[in-house]
Design a protein around this nucleic acid. Structure first.
Lengths: 232, 232
DNA sequence: CGCGCATTTCGCCGCCCGCCGAAACCCGGG
DNA sequence: CCCGGGTTTCGGCGGGCGGCGAAATGCGCG
């Protein structure tokens, strides 16, 4: 493998990125940041179960590779996922990991399966149920991995409190394969807007130290009334 | 990190997959298989620049993780990418690698930039140009990462020789971010159908030992006539 | 200005894992 | 039934890299 051969450089690059994510400690830190939060070095070290010195070195590598971005505030340096592309990479990995070798889904944390954030939208049974409910109410036209917002869906989501103009401009939205449910859930701008609105209304709450989310009692009522959601 | 903690298992899984792709030799073999072909152990060893013994061991790991599938034919064992999800993972990695740290795109092999296959559809400048040409002719409605086939586009592609019924059933198609051009190109069933048709007509040809493709002289004429493509 | 805390740098150790050669194995063909 | 080439398994070697503790740095705060 001649390193100066330009046809090889892209392999080396993907290998470099994959190797970065391939270390268990770094993977744990990336997962902790997977919901878009920004966390300082010490906290990430605890997530990964290693010392602060080791974590600092890992974070430097992830930063230099462009996987993480950092913002300083006082004597803390908050690290976060650098771009949606990186989040997409993590999801693609989780998807392959989930389907690979037919590993039983049951080994996944039940709280994560019930509901979680997937970067900026909702996933797990909750995310799948939202897509199903909207499709059943003919608010969405779902074909494979793409969802098309119908006029009735537009008014439904306007009542829910979303910005109608943005939805009108982009009536089609993409979906994302849910690695725990092996079904589609809503992603893209529409999925992100629904997710934000749910947090805004306190209909769902984040768990501590996890991407898992729970539906609150008001959330259960609200989601049933607004979107026709039947919770399992 | 308690290995029995179910909330951690998914990290370990994604780390395992990423570490597999993270080895330079394995990454080279995966890239060689990236266009969907099936190759035997010895050939993949040559691609990666290692001995057959080492390659065999790598292939075993990739197989057991569900990244590769194998089909035997005589004394050869042909390995190929196991699923579209794995191909998507490789593209997600290439995308992050290309944008990461603003690495100059110019270091990418010019032949790959000009045109290549991306699992089952066309990418590079060729893939981007096809999407642009269809959009300019109002054959596609392109919004972000989603393309919607218009009625005039339907007849255009029917003339091109694609199956009209399949296109009518799925008028929306997704696009895929091109890691070398940082633009969108067509993917999904529509992108795959166009790609297949181009090979069928001998309008584009694969390079040996690479995912790069070239447009033939007839291809240049045909693409201009059929899709209004202006080649660079 | 000096203290304390979060983070970073440095030096070093231990171990995991990929490489190779040799031998075993498998299968088609003579 | 034996031969030959492709593939897999085995044993041993070596390099790279992640871990830690200690020391250095940066930055609020008193």
């Amino acid at each position: 493998m001649d390193p100066s051969d330009p046809s090889q450089t892209c392999d080396l690059d993907i290998a470099r990125i994959a190797a970065l994510v391939g270390d268990p400690a770094r993977a744990a830190m990336l997962r902790a940041l997977g919901d878009g939060r920004a966390l300082p070095c010490g906290e990430l070290a605890a997530c990964a179960g290693i010392g602060a010195a080791s974590a600092s070195e890992h974070l430097r590598q992830l930063r230099e590779a462009g996987l993480l971005a950092v913002s300083r505030s006082g004597r803390h340096r908050y690290h976060r996922i650098a771009s949606p592309e990186v989040a997409a990479l993590l999801e693609a990995l989780a998807l392959v990991a989930a389907q690979g070798a037919g590993r039983p889904v049951s080994r996944v944390d039940p709280a994560l399966r019930a509901g979680r954030t997937c970067y900026d939208h909702l996933a797990g049974r909750l995310g799948v149920a939202i897509l199903d409910a909207l499709a059943e109410r003919a608010a969405l036209w779902v074909a494979e991995d793409i969802a098309h917002l119908t006029p009735s869906g537009l008014s439904l989501l306007a009542d829910f409190g979303l910005d109608t103009r943005a939805l009108e401009r982009h009536p089609v939205s993409r979906t994302c394969t849910d690695w725990s449910e092996r079904r589609y859930h809503l992603s893209g701008p529409l999925g992100a807007a629904i997710c934000r609105r749910c947090f805004e209304l306190d209909w769902v709450q984040r768990h501590l130290d996890s991407r898992a989310v729970s539906v609150t009692p008001e959330g259960a009522r609200g989601l049933r009334a607004a979107l026709g959601l039947r919770l399992p």
